[in-house]
Design a protein around this nucleic acid. Structure first.
Length: 803
DNA sequence: AGCACGCCGACT
DNA sequence: GTCGGCGTGCTC
């Protein structure tokens, strides 16, 4: 058993297989599956994952593993299996699947260096110059100096220099210095006696360690004894004391800052919901639950007490929360129940912080992880439950490689660990609800809000009538009156504006010219910070024009997110109102999101005006009015899920009103208030919406009746891309069944990105058991063009965005 | 992906 | 002759 099977860190289809390496004697018993190793690969050295250990190989003349990068495996056996499964089902490279399961800092970095090994005198002058006396230096220095590679090559042949490849994978552990006595107490006494009378501080320090002969954090020691490093240094130099660095966790959340909460008494509904979950936990049985509970019905308490049960049984829990809802408020609810038994993983943490939280899991220091999508890969070995809150959120699907859906991964892991999965939502996706109705998932319903609160009354306003009545503002008369009422009573209002299309673009008012990216078919976005225009898809940037590039008029200006405009007009109508605006502009800064919410929570404002980001998780008791300014802005997008998204958003937003004792009220403005998604959302009638929408989906042959798969082809040459997609469609028509529908080929909605033309086709099918196999063959068919002709082919199973 | 190797046209 | 540009093939 001295051969390791390794997946190498070379993301291309040609190396998408294992490579065998000999385990050298000094690493025998050290190398283990799931470890990262450094291996020679051609002339260089690269990182690889050991996915198996055997005693035979088809290859003779194996190279040996260079070194290990981990002392304990970073991937468990189960995660290695999961990686293979993700690669198989989403058709991504095996290495990409493995990398996706680990924190960013564990990704290897590579350095190429030139080492001088021969006589310096014999070095070519130009290299001599670059070396500047150094024994080795980065390879890039040579390239930057404009020295041709042949010069390097020659020097290598002559034996004066050598190329060395380095793999850097040292994750940055945060270390802080501790001071400890380096000699026994008796010796400390002697040292103390030997110190001169003038060395007051040194005597003080020594006497401290005579009294407490254990290690102490350097900072604390110096503070306590009111001294500085200067007096510590001679003691360390003499060898009386020693400085040791100890690893610490970067702690984004101070543990003791959370007041502990006790489990609340469950309502009847909550009890009914939690009992089957508990049963499944104790019986160690995999089962997927859909916890369908109206906003404010206390889903979180059900999660918390389910987790409690899991912890008591000595097992572990993963809680997924949408990125946008992963606010300190959410985290606090888990931290205050389970304290330091919780690790938190989300994008707002620095890479180092994420790694530290991940390591708490790896070292079995916590039993609970709360995090966004990628937290589903937490390396627990004894999972007792996986909870996915706000199951309908689209952020659970990763949009680039690997294109996995956290829900699918959760169910896969649940099967492996024989544990339940809980999908929670007030507005489940139709796919999920349909499965619950079919009995694939177990449906648990909670229809009442806690503390007897009723759902706020919703008033639908027809903005067409407002217009007829001569009101041309963004605010209906009713909404405006109600805002004023709240202000008079000292209560608060949340105003919600759906963003449509792209945030801030630049348009000429004279000729309608819109500044677009020269490399992509998309409008440029205005960045106020440096007064420049930027492309969101490539890194293109240009200065904000002062006159229109097309007609030279000076009426060119940028159009804000809408929230800005509304803020201005609202301020005009209500000069005394204190308004907080939350959108991409005001929350770009780190921590701004939280700061604004705290401000609003402290009642330092009357109105909170914002986009999507305020739809979730806000829980302010003093908010008694919620206004939706343009409910139909999502509705007319060319997306078969637009009705569903509208329903979800309206329900979500309405749930923000009247969370506490005060009754809430909701005003929904739209130009089509009679649309079923708006009407049924205002009546909180999920069931009717579901039935109606299912009919629409059936008619349109959309999910959940049909599955979708999107195939996109891109290439710098448009004709070439079109030619390929046409052939792809022909191929698919031959390979797939009669009933399967292929739409297209068509240009993608974003027809050009980074100077690449994009064409797509959509596959709609009911039953296509061999689809993955067919798609694999499709990849093989174009392997050469992908490798050598700059062709890109992407396949997205169950796409969320049709781009 | 990188890198070597080989073939080609284009320069000092 | 040597420099750089690309196409091709390989990495245990």
């Amino acid at each position: 058993m001295d051969i390791a099977r390794v997946i190498v860190d070379v993301p291309t289809s040609q190396t998408n297989r294992t490579f065998d390496y000999k385990i050298p004697p000094h690493l025998e018993g050290v190398v283990d599956t799931g470890m990262r190793v450094i291996v020679p690969f051609g002339p260089r050295k690269i990182m690889g994952f050991v996915i198996g250990i055997t005693d035979e190989s088809k290859h003779d003349r194996l190279k040996a593993i260079g070194d290990v990068m981990d002392l304990t495996p970073v991937l468990t056996g189960e995660l290695l299996e999961l990686g293979r499964w993700i690669a198989d089902t989403t058709l991504c490279l095996h290495i990409s699947a493995l990398q996706a399961m680990l924190p960013q800092v564990l990704k290897a970095k590579y350095e190429k260096e030139i080492h001088i090994i021969g006589d310096r005198e014999q070095l070519p002058d130009r290299i001599q110059l670059v070396s500047n006396g150094r024994g080795y230096f980065p390879f890039d220095d040579v390239t930057e100096a404009g020295i041709p590679y042949s010069v390097v090559q020659k020097a290598m042949k002559e034996g004066t220099i050598e190329l060395r490849y380095k793999v850097k994978g040292k994750e940055t552990l945060k270390k802080i210095p501790y001071i400890a006595p380096a000699v026994p107490v008796d010796t400390l006494y002697e040292e103390y006696e030997g110190l001169s009378k003038q060395a007051k501080k040194q005597r003080l320090i020594t006497s401290y360690f005579i009294e407490y002969p254990t290690e102490i954090e350097e900072k604390k020691l110096l503070e306590e004894l009111n001294t500085t490093k200067a007096s510590l240094k001679p003691l360390i130099d003499k060898g009386t004391l020693s400085r040791v660095y100890k690893e610490v966790y970067r702690s984004p959340y101070e543990e003791d800052a959370f007041e502990r909460t006790e489990p609340l008494t469950l309502t009847e509904e909550q009890k009914d919901a939690i009992t089957p979950i508990w049963r499944s936990v104790t019986e160690k049985r995999h089962e997927t639950f859909l916890l369908h509970g109206v906003t404010g019905s206390g889903k979180t308490e059900v999660y918390l007490q389910s987790i409690q049960q899991v912890i008591e049984e000595g097992r572990e829990a993963i809680v997924l929360v949408p990125e946008i809802a992963l606010t300190p408020q959410t985290v606090e609810r888990f931290k205050s129940r389970f304290g330091s038994n919780v690790a938190v993983l989300h994008s707002a943490l620095s890479k180092g912080e994420k790694f530290d939280e991940w390591r708490k899991v790896q070292r079995k220091e916590v039993q609970v992880v709360v995090g966004a999508r990628s937290a589903i890969f937490a390396p627990f070995q004894n999972l007792g439950i996986i909870i996915i809150d706000e199951e309908h959120e689209t952020s659970y699907k990763q949009e680039d490689h690997p294109r996995y859906h956290a829900r699918d991964v959760a169910i896969y892991r649940g099967e492996q660990h024989d544990c339940p999965i809980v999908l929670g939502s007030a507005t489940p996706t139709l796919e999920t609800y349909a499965r619950a109705k079919k009995g694939v998932y177990t449906l648990l319903s909670m229809t009442k809000r806690m503390n007897e609160a009723s759902m706020p009354e919703v008033e639908r306003i027809d903005m067409r009538e407002e217009l007829h009545a001569g009101n041309r503002s963004m605010f209906s008369r009713s909404l405006f009156d109600k805002i004023q009422e709240r202000m008079a009573k000292g209560e608060q209002t949340v105003l919600f504006l759906n963003r449509r299309g792209y945030s801030t673009f630049v348009m000429c008012r004279d000729c309608g010219h819109v500044s677009e990216c020269p490399h992509c078919d998309i409008a440029l976005t205005y960045h106020r910070k440096n007064d420049r225009l930027k492309c969101h898809y490539c890194s293109y940037e240009e200065a904000m024009p002062t006159v229109c590039p097309s007609c030279e008029s000076d009426t060119i200006r940028y159009f804000g997110t809408g929230t800005q405009k509304i803020e201005e007009s609202l301020q005009q109508l209500l000069p005394e109102a204190r308004i907080i605006r939350m959108d991409v502009d005001t929350t770009r800064q780190k921590g701004a999101h939280e700061r604004l919410l705290t401000k609003f929570g402290n009642k330092e404002a009357d109105i909170l005006l914002g986009t999507q980001m305020i739809a979730k998780g806000l829980d302010f008791g003093n908010v008694t009015l919620v206004g939706v300014l343009a409910a139909d802005s999502l509705l007319h997008l060319p997306d078969f899920r637009s009705s569903e998204k509208t329903f979800q958003l309206l329900t979500q937003v309405s749930g923000r009103a009247g969370r506490d004792k005060l009754p809430g009220e909701v005003v929904v403005q739209s130009y089509t208030p009679e649309h079923y998604s708006i009407e049924m959302a205002s009546q909180y009638d999920y069931e009717s919406f579901y039935l109606k929408e299912m009919k629409m989906r059936k008619l349109g042959q959309y999910p959940p009746y049909y599955f979708l798969t999107l195939v996109t082809v891109s290439h710098p040459n448009q004709l070439y891309a079109m030619d390929v997609i046409r052939k792809v469609v022909t191929f698919l028509q031959e390979q797939l069944s009669e009933e399967t529908v292929i739409l297209g080929p068509t240009p993608s909605p974003l027809a050009r990105i980074k100077d690449r033309y994009r064409h797509q086709c959509m596959i709609k099918y009911r039953n296509e058991p061999n689809l993955t196999k067919v798609m694999k063959r499709l990849f093989q068919l174009y392997e050469d063009e992908i490798q050598n002709k700059d062709l890109q082919l992407t396949i997205d199973f169950q796409p969320y965005h049709m781009m």
